[in-house]
Amino acid sequence: MKAILTDITKCIGCSECVVACKAYHELQEDIPRHWHRNDGLSAYNWTAIIHKEGPHYIRKQCRHCLEPACVSACPVAALVTTDEGAVIYKPEKCIGCRYCMVACPYGIPRYDWEHAVPYIQKCNLCHDRISQGKQPACTEACPTQATIFGERDELLAEAHRRITAEPGKYIDHVFGEFEVGGTSVLYISDIDLGFLTYPVKSGDKVLPKTTAPAMSAVPPAFFGMGAVMGGLYWFCKRRERLQNEKKNEEADS
C-alpha cells in the first residue's frame, strides 16, 4: 500500500505541488465559479494549499481511504481502489449521480458543473505514475520534503518517529492513521486538522459499514415480505371462502 505523508510544519506554502499537479494532469486554469466550495479544491484543482493563522499551510487532497465511502457508494463501480491504494475514477462508467460527492466524509470529489458532459474530478494519486514505480507529481515537486511518498507502513513509522523525536513540536496524533478506517494520505501537524472534514466527525467509524447491514438485509427483506404477503393472502382467501360458505349455508337453510 502506497501512501503520502505531509508534515505541516515543513510546508512553506509555495504551491509547487499544486502547479505540478495541474501541469501533469493538464487541468485547465481555475477561476472562481459560483459552485465552488471556498477551500481551493475544484474540478480543476485536485490539490490545494489552505492557509491558516501562524502561518500554517495545509495541503488538501483526496485522502485515498483504505475503505472509501465513495467506492462503496458508486452504483456502477466507476470509483475503484487499486492495489497500490489509490482511489481512481473511471469516467467511461460514470452516470453522473454525484452520490460519491454526497458520501465522501472529506468532501473531495468535485463536479464539472460548467460542461454539458460533466465528470467527477479528483486526485488519483498519480496512479499511472506510481504503477510505473515513480512517485506522484506533487511529492516530486515539493522543495522542502514536506510531503513525501512511500509505503504506508514505513511512512506511519516515520511519522511516529518524528513525533517522538520532537514531542513538543507536533500534536501526538497521525491524522489518517485510524480516521474512517485509515487513509493513505497521512498528516502530522502542530495544529488540529479537524477542519479537513465536516463539523460532525465520523471519527474512526468506517462509513461503508453504516450501509452494509441494510444492504445485507436486502434478500431476507425481499423474500420475507413475499412470505408474509403469501401467508396473508392465504389467510384472507381462506377467510373469504369460509364466509362465502357460511353465507351459502344460511341461504340454503
Binding site: 457508494a73 458508486c74 452504483p75 462508467k93 452516470i95 453522473g96 449521480c97 450501509t211
Partner: peptide
Amino acid sequence: LGLPWMVWHPIVYWQHHSALFEI
C-alpha cells in the same frame, strides 16, 4: 443526472455494495 444517457449502466456494471445500485 450529469450523464443521463448512461442511466442504463447499473444494469451492466454491478456494484452491489451501493444503495443506489439497488435503487
